[in-house]
Design a protein around this nucleic acid. Structure first.
Lengths: 239, 239
DNA sequence: TTTTCTGACTGGTATAGACAACTAGTCATA
DNA sequence: TATGACTAGTTGTCTATACCAGTCAGAAAA
């Protein structure tokens, strides 16, 4: 329970107790937890102390509050960190290079299990798979594969050859909320080395980006393979 | 000032007022703001209401508190991983790994031309060169080399073995303003492959970071070599 | 002169209570 | 059957107060 003689603050003990319940899965996502007054009574502390505990958990994304209704277990921890989201085109322009793009293939495919899970759709649902080679000053710079759920937008090939997916999406009334990106070093496989005009086994930078709409649904997954000898990924961080 | 008849909560009005002062630059990074009790008196609200305002700003990274000292305008969204500029330690912890660090060497060297230019010092000036191996769960994860101008801080070895450079710098009255970071894929050279316990020619991720102080002067250059098979660089971006 | 202590500051924790704003159900009435 | 008033419950805001725990400078003691 709770130890009033402990040097640990009461709100912290309560916070940890609740967090544990959530992480152990005792409380289902979406379910309502006890009201602040109930907690206060059970733990024999004031309501403000309970609020401090819950506040921290809300800030950490474990709980969400709803005035007049209650406090609920969040469905998943959401990240809310900020940064600029640049496209390949903008990226290259800012380096003084002339960006270009060559469409390799464009097709509807059936999502496999992993892809479906990432895009939060059913495995049976269809997704567009768009493969492109990205060029800078006519030199192949990256291979980019984009996956977008068909249900989300009825894309037509023409839209994707020219113009950005993002502006197209915004015209359709959807808005990008945030994205997560991961980078890792790897080595070029044969197919990739051919397209990128580098040696097999040469270093490449794998970048995977997942973009979310304000609706909370994933918009796209982009998997890119950049050649390591010519491409540097730059981040500027201002306060 | 503050409108007690406004439908907007008092704490929110105070929050915005403080935030504006910071964003307009009226209050310098690192400077102390009024104490909670002073705010309470000036705005004629209770201290708890002021605390609620300040709490939010602390959460958003605008302010930092220090018990017994005061509340300060922060300059370092950086350390709060707002911008993907987390320290190795935080980075690993957030992945559920146990971070450790092994000091390889610590010495004063004379800056070569390139280094001097990057750090904006004279080529004759001395810099600390700190080499470390970074471990996660006892597995070598990266080799990290840090360069700091000697003139900037009179560091002692003991300070760098434990504790972060950043907190040490801030204690000395310097504040981090922004940073630039670049990432690229490469392949392990012999010396690196040995330390990282990977094959020569295996993919590695080179990360170079340059940190600037509010004075405009560079604080440090950090050059890291991460093993590509175990390390993914993660970024979260909003908008 | 040097060391120790004290007191006045700071933020941190916690209480008890009040009222507002909102939600959802109940119940009487048109 | 609908509609609106009421009610009990929720979180949101705010107050006034109290004491704790660091920090730091200056007074007092060595």
């Amino acid at each position: 329970m709770i130890d009033k003689t402990s040097p640990l603050p009461l709100y912290y003990q309560i916070e940890e107790a609740i967090k544990q319940k959530i992480e152990k899965g005792d409380w289902e996502p979406g379910s309502m937890i006890s009201s602040e007054r109930e907690f206060a009574e059970n733990y024999e502390v004031s309501r403000m102390t309970v609020r401090q505990a819950i506040n921290n958990l809300v800030n950490d994304g474990y709980l969400t509050r709803s005035k007049g209704k209650g406090t609920f277990v969040s469905s998943k921890k959401i990240e809310q960190k900020l940064l600029g989201l640049t496209s390949f085109t903008e990226d290259m322009k800012s380096r003084g290079l002339e960006p270009a793009s060559k469409l390799v293939s464009f097709q509807k495919i059936q999502a496999n299990h992993k892809l479906a899970k990432s895009l939060e759709i059913q495995p049976s649902e269809e997704v567009y798979e768009i493969k492109r080679v990205r060029l800078a000053d006519d030199v192949p710079m990256a291979i980019e594969t984009t996956f977008v759920p068909v249900q989300l937008l009825d894309l037509q090939e023409i839209h994707l050859k020219k113009g950005s997916l993002y502006s197209h999406v915004e015209n359709a009334g959807f808005y990008i909320d945030y994205a997560t990106q991961s980078l890792e070093a790897s080595i070029a496989r044969e197919a990739e080395s051919e397209i990128l005009e580098i040696a097999k086994g040469a270093p490449v930078l794998l970048i995977q980006r997942q973009t979310y709409l304000t609706t909370g649904k994933p918009l796209e997954i982009v998997h890119s393979v950049y050649r390591g000898d010519r491409y540097k990924f730059m981040i500027d961080m201002k306060r």
